[in-house]
C-alpha cells in the first residue's frame, strides 16, 4: 500500500513538473501574444492541479491525515484561469486589433470592450481636483 502511494505521488509530481515547464516554455517560445496566451492558461494550471493532487495523496496515504484544502485551491485556480485569460485577451485586442478586422457579432451591442453595453450609462471620471 505504501509503495503504491509513493508511486502515485511521484507520478503526479513528475507530470505536474512537466506540465508547468511546458506552459512556461510556451510563454517564451510562441510567436504572437494571443498564441502565448495558450501556454500558461492551460498547461500551467494543469501543472499546479497535478502538484495539488500529489500533495493531497501524500498527506492522505503517507501521513495519514486526509484533507480537502487542495481541492479548494484547484477549483479556485480552474475557475479563475479562464477569467484572467479572457481579460488579458480583451486588453490586448482593444489596443492592437481594430474593430474592422473582427467578424460581425450579429447582436445589437457589438464587441465588448470597444463599445459600452446596450443601455449602459458611462460616468465620466473627472481628473480635475475639486476647487
Amino acid at each position: 500500500m505504501h509503495l503504491y502511494a509513493e508511486i502515485a505521488v511521484s507520478f503526479f509530481l513528475v507530470v505536474s513538473g512537466i506540465f508547468g515547464l511546458v506552459g512556461s516554455w510556451g510563454l517564451i517560445r510562441l510567436k504572437s501574444t494571443l498564441q502565448r496566451l495558450h501556454g500558461p492558461t492551460k498547461a500551467t494550471t494543469l501543472g499546479v492541479g497535478g502538484a495539488l493532487i500529489a500533495s493531497m495523496l501524500y498527506f492522505a496515504f503517507v501521513k495519514n491525515s486526509l484533507s480537502f484544502h487542495e481541492l479548494l485551491i484547484t477549483i479556485f485556480l480552474f475557475l479563475t484561469a479562464p477569467v484572467t485569460a479572457n481579460f488579458i485577451a480583451k486588453a490586448f485586442m482593444l489596443h492592437h486589433v481594430r474593430e474592422e478586422e473582427l467578424p460581425e457579432t450579429e447582436t445589437e451591442g457589438g464587441w465588448g470592450g470597444y463599445h459600452d453595453p446596450v443601455g449602459a450609462v458611462r460616468h465620466e471620471v473627472s481628473t480635475k481636483k475639486p476647487e
Binding site: G20, S24, T33, R36, T44, V48
Partner: peptide, 18 residues
C-alpha cells in the same frame, strides 16, 4: 506588449503557488 507582461505576472503567481 502590456498583455505579455500581465500574462507573465499571472503565470509567475501560478508557479509560485506550485
Amino acid at each position: 506588449r502590456a498583455a505579455d507582461r500581465i500574462l507573465a505576472l499571472d503565470t509567475m503567481v501560478i508557479n509560485l503557488i506550485a
